[in-house]
Simulated assay, not measured.
Amino acid sequence: MFDIEFNGEFAAFFVFAVLMIAGAVLMVSFTKVVHMVLSMAAVFLGAAGMFVLLEAEFLAFVQVLIYAGAVSILMIFGIMMTNHSDSRAETIKPLKETLAAVGAIALFGLLFYAIRDADFEGLDGGTPAQTTDNTLAIGQALFHNHVLPFELVSVLLTVAFIGAIALAKKEA
């Protein structure tokens, strides 16, 4: 019925899929926020592995660098710097719950009809006739044509991060 070839790529896909599913299930199962963030990082690493299998090495690198690294560390810093001594559970009001359900159903319907009515002709899913090294092109454009904006953004992010730490320490 199914023509499945058992090889290394299939095994790697299975391992990454299990890692992502287990991380997602643990993410919603854990009660401690730090454990949730670590489970989310496992999902990000599994997604990076999937990108490697799809031969999108740049996306895999960005996934590990940005999501598994920076976002997870930023969330852990946020958890550590907030005050958890007075943690009262907020009661969910029925109106908020109903509006959230209506919004989720409306979003699902919108996406369903947008995908259903989309024109996918011309998307054969094959490889392009001329393949280029996208990572090389992105690197050359970033470090040759846009060096100054790149450095300014890195300085701006560093200043914002230091400012956030200074503000968090003043309140504590």
Rank of each mutant, 00 (worst) to 15 (best):
A89R: 10
A89Q: 13
T91D: 14
T91R: 13
T91E: 15
I92C: 05
I92P: 00
I92G: 00
K93L: 10
K93W: 06
K96T: 15
K96N: 13
K96V: 13
E97S: 14
T98R: 14
T98M: 12
T98I: 11
L99E: 10
A100S: 13
A100Q: 07
A100I: 11
A100D: 11
A101D: 03
G103Q: 08
G103W: 06
A104M: 13
A104H: 04
I105G: 01
I105R: 01
I105V: 15
F108D: 02
G109E: 04
G109T: 12
G109C: 12
L110R: 06
L111K: 03
L111A: 07
L111E: 02
L111T: 09
F112W: 08
F112C: 03
Y113N: 05
Y113R: 09
Y113A: 09
Y113D: 02
I115C: 11
I115Y: 11
I115S: 11
R116L: 15
D117V: 11
D119W: 09
D119G: 06
F120I: 08
F120W: 11
E121P: 00
G122H: 06
G122P: 08
G122M: 04
L123I: 09
L123T: 08
D124E: 07
G126D: 12
G126N: 12
T127V: 10
T127Y: 11
P128T: 14
A129S: 11
Q130C: 03
Q130L: 15
T132V: 13
D133M: 07
N134K: 02
L136K: 04
I138W: 01
I138Q: 01
I138D: 00
Q140D: 14
Q140L: 11
L142G: 03
L142M: 13
F143I: 01
F143R: 02
F143K: 05
H144Q: 12
H146W: 09
H146Y: 12
V147I: 12
V147W: 14
V147N: 01
V147D: 04
V147E: 08
L148P: 00
L148Y: 01
P149C: 07
F150L: 12
F150R: 00
F150N: 10
F150E: 05
E151D: 02
E151W: 09
L152N: 06
V153H: 03
V153W: 08
V155M: 06
V155Y: 08
L156Q: 03
T158V: 13
V159S: 03
V159I: 15
V159W: 02
V159F: 07
F161P: 00
I162A: 11
G163Y: 07
G163L: 10
A164K: 08
A164E: 06
I165K: 00
